[in-house]
Design a protein around this nucleic acid. Structure first.
Lengths: 223, 223
DNA sequence: TACAGTCTATTGGTCTGATGTTTGTTTCGC
DNA sequence: GCGAAACAAACATCAGACCAATAGACTGTA
């Protein structure tokens, strides 16, 4: 194995073993490179790789730290990857979303707080027939993120956020070509909010399924 | 933005824009570093970062290539990250699995082929009371991977595979402490296979839900 | 004393150039 | 035509130099 990959593995092991914990500062590059037995240049390649997947946080003039390692940080790394995997497999992404979002909504129905309900309703303000397509898409994105967040599961949030980001474009297409997108989106969202507020998990699940399937169905025809 | 991060963005953009496609070879390091306006060392850091998330494939003595970018490649990158996010949030991982695996099984029920059924049955050979815990865990892992694969969705496979890797440890614990693990696992797996064979999506969904929940329930008590 | 500004040691950021190692290709003898 | 040797191309690694940002110590002033 190349020295750089060895260094990546060693640093990873230091974290898994607990020798390094979240928030800990690594030794300076010079020192660490000597300890691991490789040059500073090669070590820097390893650090850069770990930085891009949000395992390390490098602060110039200060030092290099282990990140909080919260599942939330998975999002950025996953999004980066998913961004490169677009178009041809977008239907597969929708299929996964159709599995997760209804389940997330059902879970949220049991856990959602009154404050979160208020926040959900707030996303629907200032949305009407004059709303731009971009705004509508943004509203829809936030709406789904709020529901996911209400399910209170960091991994779920990470996975769904990263899968959703790449579908923004698809939603824009829909907005551009399908009439009454605003009306339909608002009424569907309203129904979902009411189901969540009543704690009706099964209805929330079905409504979200229908909502996602609507976009998916249109996409399937368009492609 | 640092020159290295700029280089990462530029290479990523070259892929998204289509200037570079899957399988394409990048210019030599020296040439590309001049084109992007940075030193070879810094460029190498960028390339290493993209290599670890399986976007680039560096072949010593040959050149650097864009990978196939298949969703499958997402797995390794995600697994790397999930591996570091263990223990404290393992229940959240199980919750996501409990959302996805039953849905995957229901989808598989409609798509599964006779060959895949045979493969599923084969995983149960050579498993009995004398089987080691490690073998049982391995068998269970393969069993679920086969079902996921039968759902025929690369993204689903990627996400589930990476989430499952980190739960292997939990399964081992279960095997070590819970009696009749072999019996129970075999009978549950048998039932799932029969439901899939009959194309009974709803039964498959429920059986998998029960199966996953069993482990999750035990884990919740143990923690 | 408290505060603001300055200075400095530390640490990461970048570059250059040399050398080693691997791989693919070409050449040449048989 | 085939295989081995030589060659060229490309990545792997290193050493050392200098730049730039930051945190923390220091200092002068109110």
């Amino acid at each position: 194995m190349a020295v750089t990959d060895e260094a990546i593995t060693k640093i990873k092991d230091m974290i898994i073993s607990g020798e390094l914990s979240a928030g800990d500062r690594l030794p300076p590059e010079k020192e660490l490179s000597e300890k691991l037995g490789l040059s500073r240049s090669s070590l820097r390649e390893a650090v850069k790789a770990l930085e891009i997947i949000r395992v390390l946080d490098v602060r110039r003039g200060d030092g290099t730290y282990v990140t909080s390692l919260e599942p939330k940080l998975l999002t950025e790394a996953m999004t980066f990857i998913v961004d490169l995997h677009q178009d041809e497999t977008i239907l597969e992404i929708f299929e996964v979303r159709r599995m997760l979002e209804p389940a997330a909504a059902a879970t949220a129905a049991a856990r959602i707080t009154p404050q979160e309900i208020v926040a959900l309703r707030a996303t629907m303000d200032n949305i009407d027939e004059q709303t731009s397509v971009e705004s509508l898409v943004q509203h829809d994105l936030v709406f789904h993120q709020l529901i996911t967040a209400a399910a209170n599961n960091s991994y779920l949030t990470s996975v769904l956020d990263s899968l959703s980001s790449s579908t923004v474009r698809a939603r824009i297409w829909r907005g551009l070509t399908q009439e009454k997108a605003v009306d339909r989106t608002l009424s569907e969202h309203t129904a979902i909010i009411e189901a969540l507020e009543r704690g009706d998990a099964e209805l929330a699940r079905s409504l979200v399924t229908v909502h996602i399937s609507g976009v998916e169905h249109w996409l399937r025809q368009a492609l």
